[in-house]
């Protein structure tokens, strides 16, 4: 009889797979209560390291051509498509029907392709040439914010995460993401796909861990320029307080409001715009 090889789930940070810096783990059980694996409990130090990794990767990612970013995101969809059965199993650990899990994977793939198509289109739609009453050529262009913190929802562990991460990286940001606390395994698996998708290491960093331990650091870390979070009332207040101190943009989705992640309204241009800064330039003409 052959011994079954169990997998050590690791977080995807800076293009490599790390254990938590503190070495702590939490057991993850499937819906029936059977032990599945030990998931790393990342610390605020891990979060800080992930921010450093994101900072390193950011300028190169933002500087790539829109066409190239689109190709890479499409490649991510290819990777997920090929491993659909494995990802379906990963979602099934959290319970629910196979059909529902499969639907979530397919919707996630479609969402990635959706954003892959946006990379070379949003600058034209969000930027503008502005009429001004002086001899200036006045135009507005989009720029990525920088490093975005993302706190994913618990209930749809893959689609929720993908729906928040993709618009941010489409715009040229790099992200540090806290995966679903209850169902972290799909995010771990997504990390493995990101690693093979040509996405430069550090553009997407996926952490697992306790929300209450990490949210204060997400809020206060001055190097994160924005945080997008699905959060309850207490978490939202913590994020608002920290964001006010460190002057960062917040996009808060209340966990108590029902959110249809499958809907068309959960994707699109305005999700991308939420992670962009607009720069307006006055260029003298004539004379």
């Amino acid at each position: 009889m052959r011994l079954h090889i169990t997998k050590t789930p690791k977080c995807y940070v800076g293009g490599s797979f790390i254990r938590s810096e503190g070495g702590r783990v939490a057991p993850l059980c499937d819906a029936k209560g059977t032990f599945f694996a030990n998931i790393p409990l990342c610390t605020r130090k891990d979060l800080r390291n992930a921010v450093e990794a994101a900072a390193k990767a950011g300028p190169n990612w933002a500087g790539r051509s829109a066409y190239n970013r689109g190709q890479i995101l499409y490649r991510l969809a290819e990777m997920l498509e090929a491993r659909t059965p494995e990802m379906t199993e990963a979602i099934l650990i959290g319970g629910g029907s196979r059909a529902k899990a499969n639907r979530e994977v397919v919707a996630s793939i479609d969402r990635i392709v959706h954003y892959a198509g946006w990379t070379d289109k949003f600058p034209a739609l969000l930027g503008s040439v502005n009429p001004v009453a002086s001899s200036h050529f006045n135009f507005t262009v989009t720029e990525p914010m920088g490093i975005i913190g993302i706190i994913a929802p618990d209930d749809v562990p893959l689609l929720g995460l993908v729906s928040l991460v993709l618009p941010a990286i489409t715009g040229g940001n790099s992200v540090v993401t806290l995966a679903s606390n209850k169902q972290p395994y799909p995010a771990i698996l997504l990390g493995e796909m990101l690693a093979t998708s040509d996405l430069p290491g550090g553009v997407v960093n996926l952490l697992t861990g306790q929300r209450d331990e990490l949210i204060p650091t997400f809020a206060s870390h001055a190097h994160l320029r924005g945080v997008t979070a699905v959060a309850d009332l207490v978490e939202r207040q913590a994020l608002q307080n920290g964001a006010a101190d460190s002057v960062k943009r917040l996009k808060l989705i209340a966990v108590e409001d029902p959110m249809d992640w499958y809907s068309e309204s959960a994707q699109g241009l305005y999700e991308i715009r939420d992670h962009l800064e607009l720069k307006t330039t006055w260029h003298p003409i004539g004379g």
Partner: peptide, 17 residues
Amino acid sequence: TGVYQAPYTFSESTTAY
């Protein structure tokens, strides 16, 4: 302060990263 700082606060770097 107990708060992680952004490196560009301490240098002349002008990028958002």
